[in-house]
Deep mutational scan, measured.
Amino acid sequence: HNGKLCKLKGIAPLQLGKCNITGWLLGNPECDSLLPARSWSYIVETPNSENGACYPGDLIDYEELREQLSSVSSLERFEIFPKESSWPNHTFNGVTVSCSHRGKSSFYRNLLWLTKKGDSYPKLTNSYVNNKGKEVLVLWGVHHPSSSDEQQSLYSNGNAYVSVASSNYNRRFTPEIAARPKVRDQHGRMNYYWTLLEPGDTIIFEATGNLIAPWYAFALSRGFESGIITSNASMHECNTKCQTPQGAINSNLPFQNIHPVTIGECPKYVRSTKLRMVTGLRNIPSIQYRGLFGAIAGFIEGGWTGMIDGWYGYHHQNEQGSGYAADQKSTQNAINGITNKVNSVIEKMNTQFTAVGKEFNNLEKRMENLNKKVDDGFLDIWTYNAELLVLLENERTLDFHDLNVKNLYEKVKSQLKNNAKEIGNGCFEFYHKCDNECMESVRNGTYDYPKYSEESKLNREKIDGVKLESMGVYQILAIYSTVASSLVLLVSLGAISFWMCSNGSLQCRICI
């Protein structure tokens, strides 16, 4: 991952900044910058967002509201009850120091605090018919004063009620008058409520006091790749198909172990950190130390980045220098085999997901714990399936590479015959000098055995068991695999060879 928040398929997220979902939807004055928000790819909250409900109280069923919003990608904020005409018999300019803005008392931008007009609070009834052709999110509140005197001074009615009804919602609220500790300079409380109004449905408000009335509502448009994440990451000019709280993932790998919460087309989250597919040879310690064997393909974004291909070729060293050249036929066979294998694994496992966190309130801790156990169970199954699949494929890959290298080895052996000696570690020792032209003939299969047989015969008789390297004779190393990324691999195959001279070296080696 890149540690950044990015656009998702070209669409920017909605960053709530210092506000949370509650503050944004109710219209906390400190969240005025969010009022123009219309569309987004996903919503970003920060872990310690401080601006929620400015007048103390709870947004009821907040967790369910977050779940609903996680599939919303755009909205239209509109005046559901026009301020100047909807409440002619009531005062609608209630403000509070708890919702101060720029040093002055204020109130929510989407709600109206209705109080008595003169000395009376006549029963009010108002309704709205949803003609938007889509779901409408309606929010309101109920004020709970701290004393009967406060109730009387604001609403005149000691036994007030609030009723809200639609086809799918029907509740009646009565204020709970009680002494409470002071929070944000208030002994009173406000509880906030919401409902989704279906197209064509009607919502009716009736009250004799204590109503925090809707002013603006939201017509919602769903987008199934949307979601809500909690993150401290910063926004950058970048684009992605998959976003996590820790950063964007741009990967076609089937798995990731970065974060379980994802938005967009994302690899499946697994616990494993070692889900690797081999593309090189079986481990040979001396070669492995030099980083030549054991190439791997990573299938977990965050564990290993991208696929690494092994390729086969020849390396030689003689009086004229040293050089490398790919054996294109065996390399292409290996590439085709690995590509098919990788595609097979991805096809089997690479279903892209959006995974969002589930919200539970403080009273639902047991449910949250149960949900976590269920999620953990599914996660263990996914991890096991992934590891088992790759384990089985790896064994076949190792066998496949062994065969490829063996074929190259036999190709060289059949040409050199007794003009060189096998020394048991995949290397041959020449009994004759071999210049670049000679080396090329070994690589392309045109090695002239009779041409060098007499010199080889004489050297075999002279050496008589002495280690060949100390006599200045020449080696050919018969097994060799270097490691390159897919891009470098293609470039390498396009070149005939490249040279690395070893000044004054008397050794001649050709490596497979």
Rank of each mutant, 00 (worst) to 15 (best):
H432W: 03
R460F: 10
V390S: 01
N340K: 08
E455Y: 07
K341H: 07
R396I: 14
E393D: 13
L493E: 00
M471I: 09
E364Q: 10
T305G: 00
Y384F: 11
M277S: 05
N361R: 03
M307R: 01
S286E: 06
N444H: 06
D380L: 02
N361L: 00
M367R: 05
P254W: 06
E429S: 11
S505L: 12
I284T: 14
F360R: 04
F428M: 12
Q320T: 05
Y409T: 03
F400N: 06
V374C: 06
N425T: 12
R276S: 12
G264C: 05
M471G: 12
S470H: 14
W499M: 14
K341P: 00
K274T: 14
R276F: 02
V412G: 04
S456T: 15
Y449V: 12
C508L: 13
K467H: 15
I249D: 03
N252W: 01
G377S: 10
K274L: 01
V278H: 02
L490A: 15
V442P: 12
R282Q: 05
E237V: 06
C266V: 10
E359M: 02
Q288M: 02
S485N: 03
N503F: 01
N362H: 05
R290T: 07
F428P: 07
M235F: 14
M307S: 00
A334Q: 08
N257M: 06
G298S: 05
S272L: 14
S470G: 08
L398R: 15
G264Q: 10
G247R: 04
G494R: 00
G247F: 02
S470Y: 09
G465W: 13
S497V: 07
P260W: 14
A495P: 00
C266I: 10
L490Q: 00
N444A: 12
P450D: 09
G357R: 15
S481D: 07
G504N: 15
L489G: 12
E301D: 01
Y449W: 08
H315W: 11
C508E: 04
V390R: 03
V261D: 14
N418F: 09
Y312C: 04
T273E: 05
K373R: 15
I308H: 13
E422P: 13
G303A: 07
M307K: 02
W311Y: 14
T446M: 11
R396M: 07
Y431I: 07
I338W: 04
C266K: 06
M277P: 01
R366P: 09
F353V: 03
G357F: 09
E395G: 06
K365N: 06
C501A: 14
